[in-house]
Design a protein around this nucleic acid. Structure first.
Length: 299
DNA sequence: CGCATTTGACCCGCGC
DNA sequence: GCGCGGGTCAAATGCG
């Protein structure tokens, strides 16, 4: 039915960043250094190991950041392609006739807002469906029971409303990480598929993302092991098309084969570069996005 | 006790 | 001008 949404959600930053971020801290623990703890390692040796580990993690972090930047860059390029396609399309996409307030420009890495969502467009013949300056994210929420979408930021709920075109309530959140952050978020279950959450982001974060550091462990000194830049959107964005570009990503799941962290990192790096530089991948990405757009319009 | 969430009331824009 | 509906506010409530 409407499961076409999955096709759009290309695993750009989320999925590529996710396994990396999960693996990175893990290797601190099981690897040799700490296991020797029981043998009364001298403080010097221990601290030396830790420093070494820290520097390695720092380097790794740096590379991850670069990878993320590269991903974002290619994403932007693709987005411009999408915009180009949209402009060639006779249907006018940008007619925000219902804007209440002057919404700030969005700079969030998310889906292109081109998709007319089923929540809005299906039921009523509204034309203004697409608001140009919001970022809409689809999240699969089979497990979560509430209107909670974890995206790495801290949100404070300030309202909930039942809207007409959707029986499930819509929750309103404000970014509570920074008091001056103007970003708002609306979360609502899809009218058609209750297992799908639709999160709509408005505005742009004027602060660095908390990057889930505190959620993992309160290990006093933030050892900078986690990415300092880029919104780590750990959303359930998935795609159902393993045909293009998805092959290389799957390799990352075979992490059991990789022993040394360097090898792992190298492999991941190679995958990322091959993905971002491969014109096939970008073409597939553009095709997926445009395909999703057109299929959504025809509904 | 402090903080986040809940929830009803209120505000405001839009269509008729 | 009025009613409707989405969005926001703020007091009440619950929880750690």
């Amino acid at each position: 039915m409407n499961t076409s949404w999955v096709d759009t959600s290309l695993d750009l930053s989320p999925s590529s960043a996710r396994p990396l971020r999960l693996e990175t801290p893990k290797k601190e623990q099981p690897n040799g250094n700490l296991i020797v703890f029981g043998k009364k390692l001298s403080v010097k040796e221990e601290s030396g190991d830790l420093v070494e580990e820290l520097s390695r993690v720092n380097a790794e972090n740096k590379k991850l950041t670069e990878m993320l930047a590269a991903m974002c860059e290619s994403y932007n390029a693709l987005q411009s392609q999408v915009m180009d396609l949209m402009s060639k399309n006779p249907e006018k996409e940008l007619s925000p006739s219902k804007k209440r307030k002057s919404e700030t420009n969005f700079g969030i890495v998310g889906n292109s807002d081109s998709s007319s969502t089923d929540e809005d467009s299906c039921k009523k013949p509204r034309e203004e469906v697409i608001k140009a300056k919001v970022t809409r994210v689809y999240v699969r929420a089979e497990t979560s029971d509430g209107l909670i979408v974890k995206d790495g930021y801290q949100w404070r709920k300030y309202g909930q409303k039942v809207t007409r075109d959707n029986p499930s309530p819509r929750a309103y959140f404000k970014c509570s990480f920074a008091p001056s952050c103007p970003v708002k978020k609306k979360v609502q279950r899809s009218a058609d598929d209750q297992s799908v959450m639709v999160a709509t982001y408005e505005g742009e974060h004027n602060h660095l993302p908390p990057s889930q550091t505190e959620s993992t462990s309160g290990s006093s000194h933030g050892s900078a092991s986690l990415n300092p830049s880029g919104p780590t959107m750990s959303l359930g964005l998935r795609k159902s098309k393993p045909s293009d570009g998805g092959e290389a990503r799957k390799c990352s799941s075979s992490k059991a084969e990789m022993d040394s962290p360097q090898a792992r990192q190298h492999l991941v790096e190679q995958m990322a570069t091959s993905l971002t530089r491969d014109p096939k991948f970008t073409a597939a990405l553009a095709a997926a996005i445009s395909g999703r757009m057109f299929s959504a319009k025809s509904n």
